[in-house]
């Protein structure tokens, strides 16, 4: 058993590393998005700063820091300043319960590869993401501008609607695993069928749930084709129209951090987490699970960007009809069938 001091020190180190890695990942997913969308549209994307434009995120960050931070005179000041902070706080909080690999021993300390292992991890993530809507809604309201307000209203209606099908699509996985702990859920997906198909939830009866999750997650993170809250053709920039400099960048950070969280969650719940072929030396066996996890997250992020480069935007009534008349019944049907099958088997 560890002492309290070592627990605090280890948790602190892990938190700092997790936040640093997450923010770097956020910066480079912006770079990846610009690069991939550029190539989809037959352009080059960023090329000037560094090799392959790799230093572009750094240049963008410096630019955001040194830009003039304008506060328009007509805003509701307290909430106008608090809204981007809320967005970032909630976006970064959910990473604390996401495991990226098994237990490891580094310098004599035996610790899981996540900040903290709690038995209601999935509920915590759902709770934190459901709080995330306040950042967007309050930004839209406090800006005191019609485009911002419309963007904020759309965002809150959309996120409340899609959260239901998102939550219901996860319950099937929970029934299969019998636990809220992300570690237990990943462990329940080990092994293979017929010698070669991995026993991941996506191949193990939860295929429909995965697609419901995929679409709800896109809507939850306000991404194309569900990016109505920031539809630039009709709302200028939606809820962050009145923001500039670092406050604007904070909304961007929150959006990309949410994308990464959603990708991690999809990997953990449906794609078998860190399970994958493992071979070679001892150090390779230690590193490979983390590699598989990150590779799956990368594929999911790539899918996100690919879809952004491919699909047009929904109309608003189509968006709502899709959530309530298609995804919701589908998620309920999946839940009922999963429940029946599990009950009949046991």
């Amino acid at each position: 058993m560890q002492s309290v001091e070592s627990f605090v020190v280890v948790s602190l180190i892990k938190s700092v590393i997790a936040v640093f890695v997450l923010l770097t990942a956020v910066a480079y997913s912006v770079w990846l998005e610009r690069k991939v969308v550029g190539h989809i549209q037959n352009r080059w994307g960023p090329t000037r700063v560094g090799p392959f434009g790799l230093l572009q995120p750094l240049a963008d960050g410096i630019k955001f820091l040194f830009k003039e931070d304008i506060t328009p005179p007509h805003v509701y000041k307290t909430l106008y300043i608090a809204a981007p902070m809320l967005s970032v706080i909630f976006a970064l909080t959910s990473i604390s319960v996401i495991p990226i690999g098994n237990w490891v021993t580094i310098a004599g300390v035996h610790t899981p590869l996540q900040i903290t292992d709690v038995n209601i991890a999935l509920l915590i993530i759902l709770g934190v993401t459901s709080m995330g809507v306040y950042g967007v809604a309050l930004a839209g309201w406090s800006s005191n501008s019609k485009y911002s307000l419309l963007g904020g209203l759309r965002a809150s209606a959309q996120m409340v609607s899609y959260e239901i099908s998102l939550g219901l699509s996860l319950i099937g996985v929970l029934i299969m695993a019998g636990s809220f702990s992300l570690r237990d859920i990943v462990d329940s997906q080990s092994g293979v069928f017929w010698g070669f198909i991995p026993r991941w939830n996506i191949f193990h009866g939860q295929t429909v749930a995965f697609f419901v999750y995929l679409m709800s997650a896109f809507a939850e993170t306000n991404r194309v084709p569900f990016d109505l809250p920031e539809a630039e053709t009709e709302l200028v920039a939606g809820y962050h129209t009145e923001y500039s400099a670092m406050k604007f960048a904070m909304f961007f950070m929150a959006e990309y951090a949410n994308m990464i969280t959603v990708a991690c969650l999809a990997t953990l719940l449906f794609l078998g987490g860190w399970h994958g072929p493992i071979w070679g030396l001892t150090w390779m066996q230690a590193v490979l699970p983390v590699f598989w996890f990150l590779a799956k997250v990368f594929c999911f992020l790539f899918l996100y960007i690919w879809i952004r480069g491919t699909l047009p935007r929904f109309r608003y009534d189509q968006l709502m009809a899709f959530a309530w008349k298609f995804l919701f019944p589908l998620a309920v049907a999946n839940l009922v069938i999963t429940g029946l099958v599990v009950a009949l088997r046991s």
Partner: peptide, 16 residues
């Protein structure tokens, strides 16, 4: 999830 994340969002939504 229920109170802070869903019901209060609706409150804020209506006020907005």
């Amino acid at each position: 999830i229920i109170y802070a994340g869903a019901i209060m969002v609706l409150f804020v939504f209506v006020i907005m």
